[in-house]
Simulated scan of single mutants.
Amino acid sequence: MFSKFAYSIFEQSIKDYHVHDNVDQPVNNPYPKDKIEHLLYFKNWIDTVQWHFEDIIRDPNIDPVAALVLKRRIDASNQERTDMVEYIDSYFLQKYHNVKVKDNAKINSESPAWTIDRLSILALKIYHMSEEANRAEASQEHRDKCQAKLNVLLEQKSDLSTAIDDLITDIENGDKFMKVYKQMKMYNDDDLNPVLYQNKK
């Protein structure tokens, strides 16, 4: 099943990142660039780095100038994340472009890649919640609360994985069809963000 395949790559990416646990470390993607594994690994690496960006920027003692620099990095990371989702959807579009879509086929509310994006984020939640549930220096109450949350996340992983695999099967069988809508983010665009284009005058 694709969800299990993708999740194993997400776990590998998260594990590799935490060897050094440094947002500035270069990505060392072990997969060939022409393989879906490469896209999945890189997608999760972006998510993992951004997870830690979000931790850092919430430091109440962070220098305001450093926080602004980091906010710019988070913005760039968000754009990169969106781009990777679109690349993954392009993979599915190419893979299933010869499928005969049934007359009564329906479109899903999310494309395959956006459901996989959710699975990537969920892998990070599970990894870090597991850390908290097993943190030796934390109180037993803290560990118990985190274990309860972890149990919910694991149930969510099971449900989301089923939904992803069902969606892909439906696309394969022509019962559903997919479209890819570019995100068309406006705040990063010099021609669409009023603050940016007014400063160009």
Rank of each mutant, 00 (worst) to 15 (best):
I107W: 06
K182F: 10
D117E: 04
L70H: 02
V99H: 04
H128W: 04
S161F: 05
H52N: 12
D165C: 04
T162K: 15
L150N: 00
L39H: 11
P26T: 13
V152P: 02
I62T: 14
K95D: 08
S90I: 04
V152N: 05
F53H: 07
N28S: 14
Y96F: 15
S111N: 09
S158H: 11
H20M: 14
F53C: 01
S13N: 08
F42N: 14
D191E: 11
M178W: 11
A67T: 10
V195A: 15
D175A: 01
W114A: 04
A138R: 05
F42A: 11
D16N: 03
V27Y: 01
N108K: 13
S109D: 13
Y181A: 15
T162I: 13
D175K: 14
F10W: 00
A105Y: 06
Q50K: 11
M84S: 02
I126M: 04
Y127L: 07
Q94F: 12
E137S: 13
H20L: 15
Q12S: 08
Y41I: 08
R143P: 03
K4D: 04
F177Y: 14
E155K: 13
Y31W: 07
Q147E: 13
D190E: 02
R143S: 02
S120M: 04
D16V: 15
S109R: 06
H97Y: 06
L122P: 13
H142M: 14
Y96K: 09
R72N: 10
P112D: 08
R81Q: 03
P32E: 03
I168R: 05
S139G: 12
K43C: 04
D189M: 07
L40I: 02
V195W: 10
L93G: 06
N22G: 03
D190R: 10
Q12G: 04
E37T: 03
E37K: 03
Q140D: 14
I88P: 00
D103E: 11
N28A: 06
R118W: 05
L70I: 07
A66R: 02
D55S: 09
D165M: 00
V49P: 00
N78Q: 05
K4C: 03
V180K: 12
H142P: 07
T48N: 14
K95Q: 14
H97C: 07
P26W: 03
Y127F: 06
R118C: 05
E155P: 09
V27C: 14
I36F: 07
L167Q: 02
L70W: 07
D47R: 13
A138K: 09
S158A: 13
S120C: 09
K201L: 10
V65W: 02
S111P: 00
L122V: 06
D170G: 02
I171E: 10
N199Y: 10
K71F: 12
